[in-house]
């Protein structure tokens, strides 16, 4: 079953055309890697999948529901199902680690404070962040912020997770930790899209890869499929020969 369906997605900002007709699908439990040059609009697609941006034309379906023209109020249910992991974490800097993690639980569950505390402790343990409950995000390292952002996104158990460059700027150790987390979620049946420039991570966790260029998906499939049908497209991208995917 297709959990995410994007059909003929088009988006412009004034005279700048970003997407001219992006179409793709993601099956339940699958992880799709979305790659392309900087500024080609990968994050824009991801943002549109939870209604943070509206397409100019085309449609988006999440778990069988057309969200294209949904109001903010109606999108709440979609956003409970689909979590977004921001590139910079987007942690609430006025709240400490505990409060950041408690926020979605207090908003969307009926858990008591004891259960919330237990859930947060488990989550911090799982993400290697134990003992940091009272620390504010500004005092955490980049890797810890990324892990905390991921933890906050998945703490209410979403069905879909959208990762926006979760490993960008991380050392190999933290990159591996994030990869392991994504794989662990995959084994639980979570459907996901990974926007990244980090090709080893994409190859490690994605079932399929879609390449965005000139406002469209120009190649889609497994690594082997893309290599065989698009003669060296991925190879060129990885080696920097295909640097400009933007329009």
């Amino acid at each position: 079953m297709d959990v995410i369906k994007v059909n003929d997605f088009q988006k412009s900002f004034g005279a700048k055309v970003v997407h001219t007709g992006v179409t793709f699908k993601v099956k339940e439990g699958e992880c799709l890697g979305l790659i392309g040059g900087s500024g080609c609009g990968k994050s824009l697609i991801l943002r549109s999948l939870i209604g943070l941006e509206k397409p100019d034309a085309g449609s988006i379906e999440i778990d069988g529901v057309d969200i294209t023209n949904m109001s903010e109020e109606d999108l709440v249910d979609v956003r409970k199902k689909a979590a977004y992991v921001f590139q910079g974490g987007a942690l609430f800097d006025s709240m400490n680690v505990y409060e950041n993690l408690a926020y979605p639980l207090r908003e969307h569950t009926k858990l008591g404070e004891k259960e919330i505390s237990k859930r947060i402790d488990d989550m911090l343990q799982e993400f290697g962040l134990e003992g940091n409950q009272k620390i504010f995000p500004a005092n955490l390292s980049g890797g810890m912020q990324k892990r905390l952002g991921l933890a906050r996104a998945i703490i209410i158990g979403p069905k879909i997770v959208l990762y926006d460059e979760p490993t960008a700027g991380l050392d190999p150790f933290n990159t591996k930790k994030i990869q392991d987390m994504i794989l662990r979620l995959k084994t639980k049946g979570v459907t996901s899209i990974l926007v990244t420039h980090d090709m080893p991570s994409a190859f490690a966790v994605c079932d399929r890869i879609a390449m965005l260029k000139n406002g469209k998906i120009v190649a889609e499939g497994t690594r082997a499929q893309i290599d065989s049908s698009h003669g060296g497209l991925l190879h060129d991208f990885i080696n920097g020969d295909e640097v400009s995917g933007g329009k």
Partner: peptide, 14 residues
């Protein structure tokens, strides 16, 4: 500008 407002929306709150 640090996407915290987007994060509030993305977490299903207003």
């Amino acid at each position: 500008v640090t996407q915290q407002i987007d994060a509030i929306r993305a977490l299903g709150t207003s």
